[in-house]
Simulated scan of single mutants.
Amino acid sequence: MLEYVAMVREEAGDRIARRKARDREARRERIVGAARRIAEHEGWASVTVRRLSDEIAYSQPVLYSHFESREGILAAVALEGFRELGPALEKARSSGSRGKAIERVAGAYLKFAESSPALYEVMFTLGLTVPFGDAATPVELRSAFSKLVQLFEGRKAKPEIVAELFWASLHGIAELTRTRRFPPAWQKERLRVLVALFTRLQ
């Protein structure tokens, strides 16, 4: 009988622990979602811990129990962006003929940057301490970058270097278009020339 009671208590404890974990994850997702919404409408300068606290009716101590700082919240949003970008690039890379993969991936990248400007900004242009290109780089970033590397495998040039240059070109186009330094009317021709350059590169 005592063993049965102990088992019931253990199962109840497990259920409570799982529920608490789900609740904690739901709160975390709500914080990240609110940060994205505010940034999309008002910019990242408006995303503060106090504003988030008011927006989702969580006390500031609750927010700090999930994230140590405002930057932690922004970094979580950035990682969420990479979790979205990676599959978008993979879908573009793997659909259709191999010869068109560079063009499709370039188009998918620029579409992502254009359709989610606030998300793209926190991923690539804000001064976060999320590490790129070292042992501490999060798996989400590595996965997204690997989709670019795969485009250039089997060539004489080191594929990681070519992927970096391709990424730098795409990022430059995305940013200069966003800030209206590049005329949007030339975007198709711009993309055509870029693709031709990297397709020929050996």
Score class of each variant (00 low, 15 high):
Glu68Cys: 05
Ser65Asn: 14
Ile16Glu: 15
Pro183Ala: 14
Leu170Cys: 08
Val32Gln: 04
Gly86Phe: 08
Arg51Ile: 09
Leu191Gly: 01
Ala45Arg: 13
Phe132Glu: 12
Pro117Ile: 09
Val62Asn: 13
Gly96Ile: 07
Lys188Cys: 04
Val5Glu: 15
Arg50Trp: 12
Ser116Phe: 10
Ser169Phe: 06
Phe166Leu: 08
Leu79Ile: 15
Ala185Trp: 01
Phe152Asp: 06
Pro183Trp: 11
Lys147Pro: 06
Phe67Cys: 06
Tyr4Lys: 15
Ala144Cys: 06
Glu68Pro: 07
His66Val: 01
Leu85Ser: 04
Glu103Val: 02
Phe152Glu: 03
Tyr109Gly: 02
Gln187Glu: 11
Val77Asn: 01
Ala135Thr: 07
Arg180Pro: 00
Ala26Cys: 08
Pro159Tyr: 07
Arg37Pro: 03
Pro131Glu: 13
Tyr64Leu: 15
Arg22His: 11
Glu42Pro: 03
Phe166Arg: 02
Arg178Asp: 00
Leu2Glu: 10
Ala75Lys: 08
Arg192Val: 09
Pro131Trp: 10
Thr125Glu: 07
Pro87Cys: 10
Arg28Asp: 01
Phe67Tyr: 09
Ser116Gln: 13
Ala35Gly: 11
Trp44Pro: 04
Gly72Tyr: 02
Val32Asn: 00
Leu201Arg: 05
Arg9Leu: 11
Ser116Leu: 12
Asp54Phe: 11
Ala92Thr: 05
Ile38Lys: 04
Leu119Thr: 03
Arg192Asp: 13
Arg36Lys: 13
Glu10Tyr: 09
Glu160Cys: 04
Ala39Met: 04
Trp167Ala: 08
